[in-house]
C-alpha cells in the first residue's frame, strides 16, 4: 500500500475550547489508485490532507493520535528535515485557489524551476528548460514565451494547470488535490480534471481527490471515502455507492444532486447544519440530521460495519439504509 492513514486524530486548540477536526480517520491509497474524499466544509477532509502533507499549522493544530504510513514509514515520527524532503519529491499537493496559492511576485518559471533547484540541485538555466517542458506537458500554449509571466497574467484554468505542473514536477508517487476545480468555470473544470487523470495514469501515481462535487467523483475515482464531523462514515468502490449508499448521510448527498429527470420538483437538501466541532453530538454525530435516527444513535458511536468485502459503513442501520433505496 502506498499510503495508509490509521486512526488519525487532529484537534485545534482555540480560545473557545478544543475543536476535534479529525476523529479516528482510516483510509488507504494504492499506486495508481484514485481515492475521492467527500464531505461538507468542516468535515475534516482538508485537515486530514494537511496532516498527511505535514503542512498543518501547529499550533493551533495538534495531531493527537494515529499513524500516517507512507511507503511503510510512519511520517508522524520523522524529523522535520526528513519530512521536508518527502514533500514535493514523493508527495505533492494541488490547492483550490491557484491565484492565491501561487506567489504573486515570482514568475511561474521561477516557481516551477524552484522545485528542480532545491530538490535536484539543478542550475537555474536547466531548471528553466525543465519548467518550459512542464508547461508544455500540462498544455499551456506558448510555454516558452510565457515562462517569465506572473500568475496574474494567466487565466484561472491556466493557473490551475501551473499548479498541477508544479505538483508533477518531480514525479511524486502521491498527489493530494484539495478541491482542484472548485474555483474554475464548469467548462474548464472538466478539462483540468481530465488532465489530472491523464497525468496520474501516465505516472501511475496515487491520487487523493478532495471534493464536495459528486459529479467530478463519478468519472475519475476508484473508491470513495465520505467524511462527516471528522470521521469516515462510509467507504466504498465508486460504482456501488452511486447504486446503493449504505449510510443515510451519503444517501442525502446523492439525493441533493440536481437531476434532469426530476425537473420541476423541489431540490432535496439535508436538513440542519454541520455539527459544531467544539461540541460534536454524542453517539452518531449525524443523528440530529438523520431521518432514520433511533434511540441507540444518540448514545452509541457506530463502528465501521463491514457491508461487504470492499465496503464499510458507520451506521447502526446500514442494512435498512441499503434496502430502503
Amino acid at each position: 500500500m502506498l499510503l495508509e492513514v490509521r486512526d488519525l486524530h487532529v484537534e485545534f486548540h482555540t480560545r473557545d475550547g478544543v475543536a476535534k477536526a479529525v476523529n479516528g480517520v482510516n483510509y488507504s491509497v494504492a499506486e495508481g489508485e484514485t481515492l475521492a474524499v467527500l464531505g461538507e466544509s468542516g468535515s475534516g477532509k482538508s485537515v486530514t490532507a494537511q496532516a498527511i502533507m505535514g503542512i498543518l499549522d501547529m499550533p493551533p493544530g495538534r495531531i493527537s493520535g494515529g499513524q500516517v504510513l507512507f511507503k511503510d514509514r510512519d511520517l508522524l515520527t520523522l524529523k522535520n528535515e526528513e519530512r521536508r524532503k518527502i514533500r514535493g519529491q514523493e508527495m505533492a499537493m494541488i490547492f483550490q485557489d491557484a491565484l492565491s496559492s501561487l506567489n504573486p511576485v515570482l514568475s511561474v518559471g521561477q516557481q516551477l524551476g524552484e522545485m528542480f533547484v532545491v530538490h535536484r540541485g539543478m542550475s537555474r538555466k536547466d531548471a528553466k528548460t525543465r519548467s518550459i517542458e512542464l508547461m508544455d506537458r500540462v498544455r499551456i500554449p506558448a510555454a516558452k514565451e510565457r515562462v517569465g509571466n506572473f500568475p496574474h497574467q494567466f487565466s484561472g484554468g491556466m493557473r490551475q494547470r501551473i499548479m498541477i505542473a508544479m505538483a508533477m514536477a518531480l514525479e511524486p508517487s502521491l498527489i493530494i488535490a484539495d478541491e482542484p476545480t472548485t474555483a474554475l468555470d464548469v467548462t474548464v473544470q472538466a478539462q483540468v480534471m481530465e488532465l489530472l487523470a491523464e497525468l496520474q495514469r501516465e505516472l501511475d501515481m496515487g491520487l487523493i481527490l478532495i471534493t464536495h462535487d459528486l459529479g467530478v467523483v463519478a468519472d475519475v475515482a476508484d473508491k470513495i471515502a465520505v467524511m462527516y464531523a471528522g470521521r469516515i462514515v462510509e467507504t466504498s468502490p465508486v460504482h456501488d455507492i452511486y447504486r446503493a449508499p449504505a449510510h443515510p448521510y451519503t444517501k442525502g448527498l446523492l439525493r441533493s444532486i440536481p437531476r434532469l429527470d426530476q425537473k420541476g420538483q423541489d431540490l432535496y437538501a439535508i436538513k440542519g447544519l454541520p455539527p459544531n466541532l467544539l461540541h460534536i453530538p454524542p453517539g452518531c454525530a449525524f443523528h440530529p440530521r438523520c431521518p432514520m435516527a433511533q434511540a441507540v444513535c444518540r448514545t452509541d458511536v457506530p463502528p465501521l460495519y463491514t457491508v461487504d468485502e470492499n465496503r464499510r459503513s458507520a451506521c447502526h442501520f446500514w442494512k435498512e439504509t441499503l434496502d430502503a433505496r
Partner: peptide
C-alpha cells in the same frame, strides 16, 4: 496561501521565509 504552497513544495524554511514571505 502561497506560503503554504511553498512549504508544501518541500522548500527549506529559510527559503520559504526569505524568497516567498519576505519579498
Amino acid at each position: 496561501d502561497y506560503v503554504r504552497t511553498a512549504v508544501a513544495k518541500g522548500l527549506p524554511r529559510r527559503r520559504v521565509v526569505v524568497r516567498h514571505l519576505l519579498r
